[in-house]
Design a binder for these strands. Structure first.
Length: 184
DNA sequence: CCCCTAACCTATTCATAAG
DNA sequence: CTTATGAATAGGTTAGGGG
C-alpha cells in the first residue's frame, strides 16, 4: 500500500553540507536566485564525486530571472522570492481533478502531474499544500464562537483510492469547474 | 533495533496578478 | 482598493536507511 509515497531520502555528502551550512551562516533567508545557485553548486559537486545518478535537477528553465533590485535607500532588503506561477485554466483543471481524487498525492503522482502540466514538481506540491489549507482542512475563521463546526474532521488522511485510474486523453471541452467555495 | 534527519505536514503570513 | 491564490516561514510529525 502506498508504496513510494515519499521521494527517496537524499544523502548529502560532506562537501554539500559544507556548502549549505556556509551559505546558511551568511544568509539564513536566501531568495530564489540564491537557492538556484546553491542547487547548481551542490549538483555539480555531486556530479564531480559520483558519476551521475540523477540528471534530474531543478527546473532552471522557467521564465527569465531579472531581479531589478533598485532600492537605494533600503540596503538590507529581503531577497526576491520565486516569481508567482500563473496557472492556465487547463492546468488548474488537471490539478483540481487530481485533488478531488487524492488530496495527498505521493511523489510519483506529483511527478506525473508536473510533467503533464509542464511545471516543476515543487510547484505541484505547493499547490496542493495551499489547496488543502484553504479548501480541505477545516479552516478556522476569526470569529470566536458562532461558527458551528459540523463533523467532518476526521479520517481525512487515509483516502487511499488507487490513483492512476485516470484515462488520459479524455480532454473534455468543458468548463474549468473551479467550484468548491469555502463559504464565508 | 535505534537514532538521525530528510521529507512531509499544517497554520499563518507575505506577495502579487486579476478584477 | 479588494480578492484569490502562489510562495515563504515556523514548527511539529513521519519514516527511510545507516550504524
Amino acid at each position: 500500500v502506498v508504496t513510494n509515497y515519499r521521494r527517496s531520502r537524499t544523502k548529502f555528502t560532506d562537501d554539500q553540507l559544507k556548502i549549505l551550512i556556509d551559505a546558511f551562516n551568511q544568509k539564513p533567508y536566501p531568495g530564489y536566485a540564491t537557492k538556484q545557485r546553491l542547487a547548481l553548486e551542490i549538483n555539480t559537486e555531486e556530479a564531480r564525486h559520483r558519476f551521475q545518478k540523477k540528471p534530474e535537477c531543478e527546473e532552471v528553465s522557467e521564465s527569465s530571472q531579472s531581479h531589478g533590485q533598485g532600492h537605494p535607500g533600503k540596503e538590507n532588503q529581503r531577497e526576491a522570492r520565486r516569481s508567482r506561477t500563473c496557472y492556465s485554466a487547463t492546468q488548474l483543471h488537471t490539478l483540481i481533478q487530481a485533488f478531488t481524487k487524492d488530496p495527498y498525492p505521493g511523489i510519483e503522482c506529483r511527478e506525473q502531474l508536473a510533467k503533464e502540466i509542464g511545471v516543476p514538481e515543487s510547484r505541484v506540491q505547493t499547490w496542493f499544500q495551499n489547496r488543502r489549507s484553504r479548501y480541505y482542512t477545516k479552516k478556522q475563521k476569526r470569529e470566536p464562537d458562532e461558527s458551528l463546526e459540523q463533523n467532518q474532521g476526521q479520517d481525512i488522511r487515509e483516502s487511499k483510492v488507487s490513483i492512476e485510474g485516470t484515462q488520459n486523453g479524455a480532454n473534455l471541452s468543458s468548463d474549468p469547474l473551479i467550484s468548491l467555495k469555502p463559504e464565508r
